[in-house]
């Protein structure tokens, strides 16, 4: 039913003598729905884009407390702890004595290795601590802790997101889009078994995508400990920074859409198993497909904007 000349789906055919109808009601409605979804994601992604593009240094930094005078800290130094080495207690003691940090905070720095960041040092202090840690067998180097406007991709000190994992996940979602269109194409030719098979594949791929995202959320929220440049608490939660807020809101709402899509697909799949659809009547498969592709398109843009840029 993709041809311009094809008749509308019989089940939804408007009265025969009606004014020439451009399509079926279902199709008009699903495209309208997608238009509203475009506007909804514009609200979220547009906000992200302008925040991302326009945030002055003052609006994003977790290396320092919210009220810190960032211009004065422009070239502050710190020590990046690459590996703790054999003498964890010694390392902890050295850091504590050099910075006066409490036990819990030092423990977090150690846990964040290989990206543990010791901040609050001047150039001299950083050099001394690096030397001391080197003696204890730890891997450490003094580094500039220049405030970062916004987390940069591939910068483990500011960005907790795993691009490698998500690239794979992106491709999984794209594959699910392909299987979806194959399912629609199969039912258009009346090949019901093949349609069910492709629907099942889509369902599985969509579920995998969701699973990976849940895993990613788990890692971010509590699974791992991140350096202080990402979060002062060690975990990447929505309240730690504007980036975290945007990340969780945007990917969370996309995830909700995927979840809704998976539920819809499951229902369509059941209907397909029960033989509900045929070459003449496949509206539900097609509409579910359109929604699924839309979710895929949103992810393609979101992946680029949120993860890669």
């Amino acid at each position: 039913m993709t041809s311009a000349d094809a008749p509308p789906h019989p089940a939804h055919r408007p009265s025969a003598d009606a004014a020439p109808a451009p399509a079926t009601p279902g199709k008009v409605a699903i495209w309208l729905f997608l238009a509203t979804e475009i506007m909804f994601f514009t609200g979220l992604l547009g906000s992200y884009i302008v925040f991302r593009a326009g945030s002055p240094p003052t609006s994003y930094s977790n290396l320092y407390a919210p009220a810190a005078q960032l211009d004065r800290l422009k070239d502050a130094r710190g020590v990046v702890l690459g590996a703790v080495g054999p003498d964890a207690d010694g390392v902890a003691g050295a850091i504590a004595s050099a910075t006066g940090k409490g036990e819990a905070e030092v423990a977090r720095i150690l846990a964040a290795a290989p990206h543990g960041v010791v901040n609050g040092l001047d150039e001299k202090g950083a050099g001394e601590l690096t030397a001391a840690l080197g003696k204890l067998g730890a891997k450490a180097e003094a580094a500039s802790l220049r405030t970062s406007n916004w987390p940069r991709p591939y910068d483990p000190l500011t960005n907790p997101l795993s691009i490698d994992l998500t690239t794979v996940n992106t491709f999984i979602l794209i594959c699910s889009s392909a299987t979806m269109v194959l399912a629609v194409s199969a039912i258009q030719q009346g090949r019901k078994g093949r349609c069910s098979l492709f629907l099942l594949a889509t369902l599985v791929l969509g579920g995998t995508f969701l699973g990976v995202q849940v895993f990613e959320y788990h890692e971010l929220l509590e699974g791992r400990s991140y350096p202080i440049g990402i979060s002062p608490t060690g975990h990447f939660t929505p309240e730690v920074s504007l980036f975290a807020s945007c990340f969780f809101t945007v990917t969370g709402f996309h995830g909700l859409h995927v979840a809704a899509g998976v539920v819809t697909l499951a229902i369509v799949f059941l209907g397909s198993l029960l033989g509900r659809f045929s070459a003449q009547d496949f509206g539900a498969v097609e509409y579910a497909g359109l929604y699924w592709h839309f979710v895929d398109v949103v992810w393609i843009l979101l992946f680029t904007i949120v993860y890669l840029i």
């Binding site: 311009a4 997608l34 475009i38 269109v181 839309f294």
Partner: peptide, 19 residues
């Protein structure tokens, strides 16, 4: 994705009027 998978290639003008 939009052009081929969502069949925009085969769609009539009205879809573009919506999107």
């Amino acid at each position: 994705v939009a052009w081929y998978f969502m069949h925009l290639k085969y769609e009539r003008f009205w879809v573009f009027l919506v999107i």
